[in-house]
Amino acid sequence: MPDPLPTHAGPFALGTFSSGTDAFPGLVTGARVRDLSDQVPSVRALFDDWDTRLPRLHELAASADGTWHELAGLRVLAPVEPGQILQSGANYRKHVVDLVAAEKESVHGATPEEARADAEKMMDERIRSGVPYVFLGSPRAMCGPYDDIVLPELGEQHDWELELALVIGKSGRNVPAEEAMSHVAAYTICNDLTTRDRLYRPDLKAIGTDWFTAKNADTFLPTGPFLVPADFVGDPNDLRITLRHNGVVRQDESTKDMIFDIPRLIAYVSTTTTLRPGDLLLTGSPAGNGAHWGVFLKAGDVVEAEITGLGHQRNTVRSQA
């Protein structure tokens, strides 16, 4: 466990922990964790009846009853096992403008000023009339917030993508944007890693991107440390996202820069899939990925990440044994 202990907004947070071989759902208050096994079998089960569970969690946080542990003595696991993971791509304006402008310069010969002006015009139009880009991720890519990131044998351009993620607390299909926030139970941190040089299949160019291979290696989705109830987080469109690679700040942006905000993301994905309690929705990553800096992950690197009020992650990178 890193020092100091991770902090969170509000009087408590939720997570999954281990004091040995068995994992248990826990309620975190400061430096202590109450075992919730006497209440639910898993953290995900809390969201099946979130509106009823939340007041009870307030009561438990204020009570000395139950089994309590010192957080420093526990292993912090990924906080929830989601039903599905929905991932939003190309959802930060500055990030996408940088990518489009770079292509216009290198491929089309535009000047830097022309390229950026054209890219910004494209993004403004996308905000007005476009729709999000969303794909599915594998829950088996998840690992804990302090676990090692294990680089797969294939590929060399292993990249970081820090993201704000939300947990669904109420089922819904075709959810109107104006009602979407009532479906959000909690928030957490996800680092959605990507192997850039495995993203496109040279043998199947017509099919396009290979998200499964590029993004779903084991340990490629460090998640947590906690789930912080939405009531404690404040405005999710005004949170700071910061990632450091070997101590160097690489990503540092506000969620205000999202192209499609959380209500629009929820409304969009729910036109295709029924959202269920415990589903995880990642909202995209801001500018500052390794591809931007020309720096990629290698064994021995340390990645540190934080989002306002949600705690922090610290992952060491290693090669497969």
Rank of each mutant, 00 (worst) to 15 (best):
S285P: 04
S18M: 00
E59S: 14
E103L: 06
S42A: 08
D235E: 12
A45W: 06
F24V: 02
P11G: 15
A267S: 11
L74K: 04
F232A: 10
V28G: 00
R198G: 05
L281K: 02
T283G: 11
V269W: 05
W293P: 00
G278E: 01
L54T: 08
D159C: 04
D279R: 02
P263V: 03
D238E: 10
A62N: 09
K170F: 06
R314S: 13
V233R: 04
E306K: 05
T29P: 00
G73E: 08
S19N: 15
F232M: 07
G109Y: 00
W50R: 10
G10K: 07
P225F: 04
R93S: 00
R75Y: 01
A299I: 06
A165L: 05
A115F: 05
V269A: 00
D252S: 10
V150E: 09
S171N: 05
L282A: 10
V33M: 12
P176S: 13
L60W: 07
P112N: 11
H292P: 06
A180G: 06
M1P: 08
V131W: 14
L57D: 07
K215N: 03
G144V: 00
M181G: 01
Q251I: 11
T188E: 02
E70Q: 08
W211Q: 09
G172D: 04
W68S: 09
K170R: 14
A305S: 15
L14S: 02
N91C: 08
I127E: 11
L77M: 09
L71F: 03
A180Y: 10
V28L: 12
L243F: 03
R53T: 10
T273M: 14
D98K: 01
D301P: 04
R240Y: 01
L60T: 08
R201W: 07
R56K: 11
D124Q: 13
E253Y: 07
S18N: 05
E156A: 14
L310T: 11
K104P: 10
K205I: 07
A141N: 00
S171D: 02
H108T: 05
E304N: 06
G155W: 04
L204S: 09
H312S: 10
D159H: 01
E179Q: 15
V228P: 07
D231V: 14
G234N: 01
P79T: 06
V249R: 10
A141S: 14
K104L: 15
T111H: 10
E105Q: 15
G66M: 04
S88K: 02
D261V: 01
T194V: 07
M181D: 05
R196A: 03
Y92C: 05
E153R: 15
R140Q: 14
A117Q: 13
T271G: 08
R75S: 11
Y92G: 00
K104Y: 14
G137R: 10
A101H: 14
K94M: 14
D147H: 04
L282F: 08
G66A: 06
K298I: 09
